[in-house]
Design a protein around this nucleic acid. Sequence first.
DNA 1: AATGAATGAGGATTCATTCAT
DNA 2: GATGAATGAATCCTCATTCAT
Lengths: 206, 206, 206, 206
Amino acid sequence: MTQQPASDERRPANNGRKAAARNRAALVTAARQVYAEYGLDAPLSAIARRAGVGQGVLYRHFPDRAAVATAVLDENVAQIERAAAAPGADIAGVFGVLTWHQTQSTAFVNILHADGAVARSGIPAYASALSGRVERALRTLLPDDHRLAAAKDDLMIAVAMVSGSVTGPTRELRERRALAAWRLLGVEVGPVRPFDGEEGGQPPLD
Amino acid sequence: MTQQPASDERRPANNGRKAAARNRAALVTAARQVYAEYGLDAPLSAIARRAGVGQGVLYRHFPDRAAVATAVLDENVAQIERAAAAPGADIAGVFGVLTWHQTQSTAFVNILHADGAVARSGIPAYASALSGRVERALRTLLPDDHRLAAAKDDLMIAVAMVSGSVTGPTRELRERRALAAWRLLGVEVGPVRPFDGEEGGQPPLD
Amino acid sequence: MTQQPASDERRPANNGRKAAARNRAALVTAARQVYAEYGLDAPLSAIARRAGVGQGVLYRHFPDRAAVATAVLDENVAQIERAAAAPGADIAGVFGVLTWHQTQSTAFVNILHADGAVARSGIPAYASALSGRVERALRTLLPDDHRLAAAKDDLMIAVAMVSGSVTGPTRELRERRALAAWRLLGVEVGPVRPFDGEEGGQPPLD
Amino acid sequence: MTQQPASDERRPANNGRKAAARNRAALVTAARQVYAEYGLDAPLSAIARRAGVGQGVLYRHFPDRAAVATAVLDENVAQIERAAAAPGADIAGVFGVLTWHQTQSTAFVNILHADGAVARSGIPAYASALSGRVERALRTLLPDDHRLAAAKDDLMIAVAMVSGSVTGPTRELRERRALAAWRLLGVEVGPVRPFDGEEGGQPPLD
DNA sequence: AATGAATGAGGATTCATTCAT
DNA sequence: GATGAATGAATCCTCATTCAT
């Protein structure tokens, strides 16, 4: 007599620790896609479904709606940090990477505001942390004589301004407007692109 | 299965035909307040409740969610138009009035984007109309040699940029940031105030 | 404005995965009863309530109002199909079973019309599928020299005619009228009864 | 000084007795059209609106939903009565007129059932009265040796059967099916047409 | 650890009916 | 007599969240 499963119901496979990490990654990827299609208010069930996991798994990995969004945006911020930390990085180049993400996803744009509409979606505290990381990354490369180094707040105000200018249905249009914004600010920007191309295939967030 | 009034309980007062206009006004005022507290996604029932009317009244006056928001924002836009049409108006002064409204309500800010988050709230078509009215009002006063008159899109991109900069918990803080934004743009702005002070007591939108 | 579970009150029992099939069956049974009492326009909430489940469960199992009705009527049609497929079946016997269902539930009657009032209830496409299944079942047994085999449409027109005759407050009365109708058509009908008695206890649909 | 209206509000004209009758007629006409487009469940407000009167007027003339429907159908029945009372009328001719109305409006069909779906729409008692009038009109012309004169109920059962057969999207198709039904019943029918052509332009009911 | 069914509150929307004017 | 605004109950449908398995 060989072993029998306890019941005749098929029990969902328990794939162990490894699967847990894989599930988390799948959720973040799925969330990125879903946000892109339906916005930050998309039903969490849609994210779980697209990730191919049960609803419960989502709750296991993320305590609330905000945590999911943060996890998604975290990748964008991390990329900016890496761009800033890369050997030979200069501020114009990082502005270019930043601009890429701004034009890529309006959700990312909102996070930099760290309040307003984003706050409404329940992305509260996490957001300003992300915003702070972006600021630190930029400031490490900002020369003292840069146009945005004069007043303390100018740097992030300028970033917010560019974010504000980034509207329109296509990324190309948004990029055009973002570049016009930087030009109006008199700030030089490098090529608008993801860092390392590593996220080139990423769908936009929103 | 037709609807029944369910009970023969007494029916609250019918305030007659005169009340119609008053109710509409009450709804707009209530909407302004509710938007301020809960954002553009606030339940319509909350607006009706705050206005002290039944749900049906809201639907009688406004066919959909967008119409409510439009009615609210329309007052802000109208004020900018009046400011631009006033004798002796100059572009800096109107920028000041515009900035007042930008700092007063984030909902108004969103409308100028005419897409993105606002579109999500179902404010789509109306929004761009309002945005167009603002642009026309500004452009009538824009001198040919103005910094924002060079490229066709610069004017509204600049407005969007200032909108982007307008974040923060208090109006005063938002005004400070807005003025910093205009300064970074190299654009002169008059006093930040409502036109005629007529709407000074208005609660912020969002 | 995201949804809240509103209270931390205790949440009624989750009966686990096994209950799913049981719930679906309960919904179909409840729907049958509710349709019988209130007609095909009965509120879906009434069906869920009678089935002892939340509203969401109904939507989980049936995407829309039509799917519920179809599930209910499907059992009636299936019984006619089984009657037609039974060894030794003859057309008169199947007419008898058909007539049983016609007298049992006016909802079933309507489905055979496959339009009109039924269409209004939003049962559109499904209905004609069910009607087609009845036709196919009957036609397999229809002798070439049968009175209703002459013209292509006569069979289902006759069925519709009997359906039309089936009115009145009690099933017995409806049966009497149905038999009179078949007699006027000159068509022989077997005993009016459910097939196998298996659904004898079913409440009427409408 | 000429007389002034009591208030500066425009008061709706009170057109007196004459207008009352005109309003009633307008309501019946409007109801006929609205039923044709939206079915018997159409909102009463739609009927009032199409008639160009306030909601209150509808309630003044008709106590409930059923009364409206009855008033509409009354005209159809009256026409059948006139056809039966016309000099030289014969039963086949009246069947033709009856069939015209059956194919013209499914609402009329339902009324002849005097229960079922119609009852649900709240057309209760009135309906059987109308049905009775049709029966009396037909029976005055029914020869004793007519196929439908043998058993007492056969006449109206046959009418109901034809009603049952009358389905399909176009009047022409419905007429074809109705004629097939009469043929299956072995009953001769005259030309399918309105009486006197007087109501030829009437929109169908449903 | 995962699944995914169930719950049920919440929000949108529609209409029958009343009633001040 | 007529108008048409207002009421608010009822229904539909969606989702966040829990929890038995």
